[in-house]
């Protein structure tokens, strides 16, 4: 029955197996599922980095320990900014659901600013660490720390780049289906980064300062 559509691309003319079921069973919106699968593979990158950190967490090589270099006040500020940005993104989603472009743009903008604030504090922390001689080359612990936290920070940076791009797209084309899909995908990305950060602040910072 789907012969006509399948032969259109000239691939299954000779009666090869059809791998794409054309019935009601495949989801209409492949993008969201595909993006979720990307996030899951990203999760594995972080699993590898967490495992590395777990193995090297106490390999100080005579360098500073977590208790000496971590400033929990900074981490608390960072955590609250990321948490707040999660709910502001939620507000953007609600505005988008109500088809209000302006509200969506404003809440997305606030989310981006909170993300930028998070990055600024993290960069300050890195700068401070390197300044006092706790560079990635100092010990296995610091290498793993910079790799894990740096990768998370890089994700936030790309999230902000994506968010700014999306602001321009929304401004130009409005709340068209494609843009709504993009806002959905970015929301998954953003909340996913928050989930990873929960792991980071518990596993790296809070456990790192324990004696």
């Amino acid at each position: 029955m789907s012969e006509a559509t399948m032969t259109a691309d000239g691939k299954t003319q000779d009666g090869q197996l059809e791998f794409l079921v054309k019935g009601d069973h495949h989801p209409q919106n492949g993008t969201l599922l595909g993006f979720w699968l990307y996030l899951m593979s990203d999760c594995l990158i972080f699993a590898a980095l967490f495992a590395t950190y777990g193995v090297l967490a106490r390999s100080y090589a005579g360098g500073p320990t977590g208790m000496e270099v971590f400033d929990l006040t900074l981490v608390a500020i960072n955590t609250s900014m990321l948490l707040l940005s999660s709910i502001t993104y939620g507000f953007a989603m609600l505005e988008m659901q109500a088809n209000r472009l302006k509200g969506t743009l404003i809440w997305l903008g606030i989310t981006g600013l909170l993300g930028a604030g998070f990055l600024a504090v993290e960069l300050y922390e890195f700068y401070h660490l390197i300044h006092i001689g706790a560079t990635p080359q100092t010990s296995g612990f610091l290498t793993a720390f910079f790799a894990l936290v740096g990768t998370h920070g890089l994700h936030v940076l790309f999230g902000i780049v994506w968010l700014v791009t999306l602001l321009f797209q929304l401004k130009k084309h409005g709340l068209i289906p494609a843009n709504k899909r993009r806002v959905f995908c970015l929301s998954m990305f953003w909340h996913f980064l928050d989930v990873v950060w929960v792991g980071v602040f518990t596993f790296v910072y809070l456990m790192g300062v324990l004696p």
Partner: peptide, 12 residues
């Protein structure tokens, strides 16, 4: 229909 339906209550 695309994406989940979200609510304020859920986020709060």
């Amino acid at each position: 229909a695309e994406g989940p339906h979200v609510s304020l209550k859920e986020y709060v």
